[in-house]
Design a protein around this nucleic acid. Structure first.
Lengths: 224, 224
DNA sequence: ATCACTCGGATAGTGGCACTATCTCGTCTG
DNA sequence: CAGACGAGATAGTGCCACTATCCGAGTGAT
């Protein structure tokens, strides 16, 4: 198929596809002649993946490029490829190690990992972007003066571990290595917004269950 | 305290604080005279809340303003205030109802709500931004050809419901109404990145547990 | 053969957002 | 009373994800 058809079938404008080609998020098509390039189903699939990462996962273009580099690098074993691809999704600014609440948070997170027995990879895990993100979030809570007991964090962690087990079980069902790696990336990039949405829905539901709709419910405010 | 001190204690530059004042994220200080304004602990607290929402929660400035408007609106009951504040955090672009995968996703999500018995507020819930987000995420998966059985979605939803119960229990522990509403907002804005980070850590852990570190582990790539 | 149409590549421009730099003037401090 | 500092106003910056335009080279119906 040609650019125009790729555009139509994916719902992405040709201008944007050209942009992705320039940025290296999409392999160039097979050049038929000076003015025509041929794209195939694989291009379409990759384009949809890119779009999902950018639009649903809010992953920056440069990061998508980085992630795809790892997904496509079949010189590595699956675990490493997966890990590398996931590590390329940092999303959070480095905390300044000076800050007192960051240090407290770091200690607290280390305790958590110990408690959970995730010290498995203690040396590795503290380098992970996810670890950094967690520290930043915990530090933000602390700085706001919201205290909780460490049980809560453990409980959250156990819930997310259950979710991770579900993810990986799902990943196992895909046959090829590349599909598995892609599925893992999607697990991070698409499952997380999904979990977030479910979390908010659950909050609404649970809130309604506990308190009902104090006065009339739907609010009806906000006419956009 | 004056602007400079507020800046120092919060770690936010005076220029940025002025920007937040202009944008209405922060109430103006008590004007002492033409060139001096006085800020108090409440301003500091609010500033930290704003920062947490923007930096950790990646909430756009305009949305923060919207959310705070509801947090501060004590003409409403708590549940409504909470709901209104949470609804102001949309974060996801409207899906185009035309798209086939969006329609399928919508049906699937409706089934999910039914199964869970969350149809409690069926009429209300389908208007919720969280519902929209969920539909978008599910549709993205479908469009990529990744199928899963509906059990998985239900399992995720139950996990997130457990998380929501934990949240709301935590919210209950705060005495004042405004603190409760703030805590609920933080529950959406800060707990979610935390859950996300925990999710990725759990994936790493579980992945290591299942497959080990096929070759050497830490990867060591990426010298930034 | 012709000529409007289309294709794909290159380049510059747009709009939104979160700040940030500067300018000015009034006020407090020694 | 001089010089430093504070605070408001305004314009500018840098980044990012596109998007608009131009151009020369094929293509297809006549």
């Amino acid at each position: 198929m040609r650019l125009a058809e790729l555009s139509e079938r994916s719902g992405v404008s040709t201008a944007t596809i050209k942009y992705y080609l320039r940025e290296g998020l999409l392999a160039p098509g097979r050049q038929r002649n000076a003015t025509t390039a041929e794209y195939d189903e694989e291009h379409l699939r990759r384009l949809r993946l890119v779009r999902a990462m950018i639009q649903v996962g809010r992953v920056p273009v440069a990061t998508v490029r980085e992630v795809l580099r790892h997904v496509d690098d079949d010189s590595l074993g699956r675990t490493i490829r997966m890990g590398a691809a996931l590590w390329a999704l940092p999303q959070v600014p480095e905390p300044d190690a000076e800050d007192a609440s960051v240090q407290t948070a770091r200690r607290e997170v280390n305790d958590l990992l110990e408690t959970l027995g995730w010290s498995n990879a203690q040396a590795v895990v503290t380098l992970s972007p996810a670890y950094r993100s967690l520290v930043v979030a915990v530090a933000a809570f602390r700085r706001l003066g919201y205290d909780w007991d460490s049980e809560l964090l453990v409980a959250y962690a156990q819930l997310m571990h259950q979710a991770a087990v579900l993810d990986l079980d799902a990943v196992e069902t895909y046959p090829s290595e590349t599909e598995k790696v892609e599925a893992a990336v999607l697990g991070a990039v698409l499952v997380e917004p999904m979990l977030q949405a479910l979390h908010r829905l659950a909050q609404e539901e649970e809130s309604a269950r506990r308190y009902g709709f104090e006065e009339g419910g739907g609010t009806g405010r906000e006419t956009p």
